[in-house]
Amino acid sequence: MSVTPDALHRRVRKEVADRLDLVWQVASTLHADPEYAFAERRAAALLTGELRRAGFDVRQDVAGLPTAFTARRGEGGPTVALLLEYDALPGLGHACGHNLIAAAGLGAALAVRAAWDGGPGTVLAVGSPAEEGGGGKALEAEAGVFDGVDAALMFHPGVHDWVRAPLTAQEQYVVGFHGRAAHPTGNPAEGIDALAALIEMFNVLAALGRRLPEASHVQGIVTHGGTATNIVPEYAEGRFGLRAATTGALDDLAGQLRTCAAGVAQATGTTVAVERATVRYEHFRDSEALSERFAAHLSRAGVDLTPPRPGVYLGSSDIGNVSGLLPAIHPFVAITGEDGSDHTPEFAAAAASDRARRVLAAATEALACTAVDVLRDEALRAAAWRAHRAETAGPAR
């Protein structure tokens, strides 16, 4: 396509502006009708309907997930993926702002398709359900959805204006101790107290926690502690959430969890089973070249992104699994003040506010401009891939 970058960006910005009312209506509709992990049927129908009307080739039930989809426009490479999240939080609605993520990804895909129509490459919108614990993008990555993609782009509303996301690796384990039931008065020596073993597990993990590296921690709850106070518990179970700064550190922490469980079982005369209970979320690997390009485009709207504060981590996301495969971005753009927090009723309200609409317009424009840069700029793609390969091949895990 023989057009200057500035002219192309102007065209993209116009296409975004022409669709802003539609994009905000989509965000508002999703906000008013929250759906939860792997059950986002109305959200998926709304988004795929708009993509079909724009001429995208839509495929549903992607990766065996009924509310996952891909929508493709164009042929051959390069390929840029725009990621759409649309699940909500039970009891809180869109308290993480996924309504805005979905609308921005949709708006950017539509604008790029229109501005780049006839240009080489492919625009791919990826509908990824169940970010809040189900790991839709992780499952899509395993299924090959991102094979052949050159970059994956999304933004996340938040309480900070940060150019990249300090997102940890995380997974959950179920630890079950098996003992032997007995009457605690009549024949206490016959019993093997599984609950006592589980309690000791918590004590051992508390001691372990004092020497874990930065960002590594274990948080546990008791999910089964016995059936009656006059029966020595023959089975007790806990669920433990593990987080770490890197995926390698998470693997190390999981190994320590298993070692602790085996030691407690040996000390208490119980047997133990340790099983992973969730999809593993890998840590996020930021593509600096692409994130800086997004930040430059966003600055046109008066929003200046900065690096995250050292030592501050903001949870985990399945975008980490995508970022292990290809260059990806996940900047935060604030829709409320830094004294707030997501996963709260106040943040849910902010996701439908006037400020959210302004952020949505700016982020959609920046995503779309970054996407066309990926399509047109071979040097940018090469720089992103060089950095990605260096990070994923290096000693840091």
Rank of each mutant, 00 (worst) to 15 (best):
E214F: 03
F202R: 13
V3K: 05
F146N: 04
G324V: 06
T229G: 14
A371P: 12
V264K: 01
G179F: 11
Y235T: 15
P307T: 03
P166N: 14
L326M: 02
G320S: 06
L92W: 05
V372Y: 12
V145D: 10
Q60R: 15
S216L: 02
V149E: 00
A206Y: 11
S128H: 00
P129F: 09
R164L: 11
L305Q: 01
R381L: 11
R73N: 08
G255F: 10
G191Q: 10
G136D: 02
L208T: 13
P308V: 06
A68M: 03
A350Q: 08
V232H: 02
R258M: 09
T229I: 14
S341Y: 14
G263K: 00
P129E: 05
A245W: 05
A236H: 00
A103V: 02
A43T: 04
V80L: 04
L253K: 11
G340I: 05
D161I: 02
A32Y: 11
E50N: 03
A295F: 12
E378Q: 14
V112E: 10
D318W: 06
Y235I: 10
L124H: 07
W385R: 15
G134Q: 03
A351H: 03
G337E: 13
G225R: 03
R243V: 07
D150H: 07
A334I: 11
E40Q: 05
T259R: 14
P188T: 04
L298S: 06
R180G: 07
A356I: 04
D161M: 00
E237P: 11
E200T: 13
S291L: 04
A289H: 13
Q170Y: 11
A43I: 05
V222M: 13
H183F: 03
D373C: 09
R280W: 11
D339M: 04
R239V: 12
A361L: 10
T29V: 09
V112H: 04
T306H: 13
A111P: 04
A196V: 12
G76W: 08
H94Q: 01
G158H: 09
A349P: 08
E338I: 13
E237Y: 07
L242E: 13
R73C: 14
L212E: 09
D18V: 09
E346H: 11
L298E: 03
E40V: 01
G107S: 01
A348D: 02
T229K: 10
L20P: 03
E346V: 07
A43H: 02
Q25W: 08
A262I: 05
E234K: 13
A249L: 14
E35W: 13
E171C: 15
P331M: 04
R293V: 09
A273G: 12
D161W: 03
L82G: 09
V16W: 06
G144S: 01
A68H: 12
A296T: 14
A81W: 09
N321Y: 05
F347T: 02
P395F: 10
D117W: 09
G136A: 07
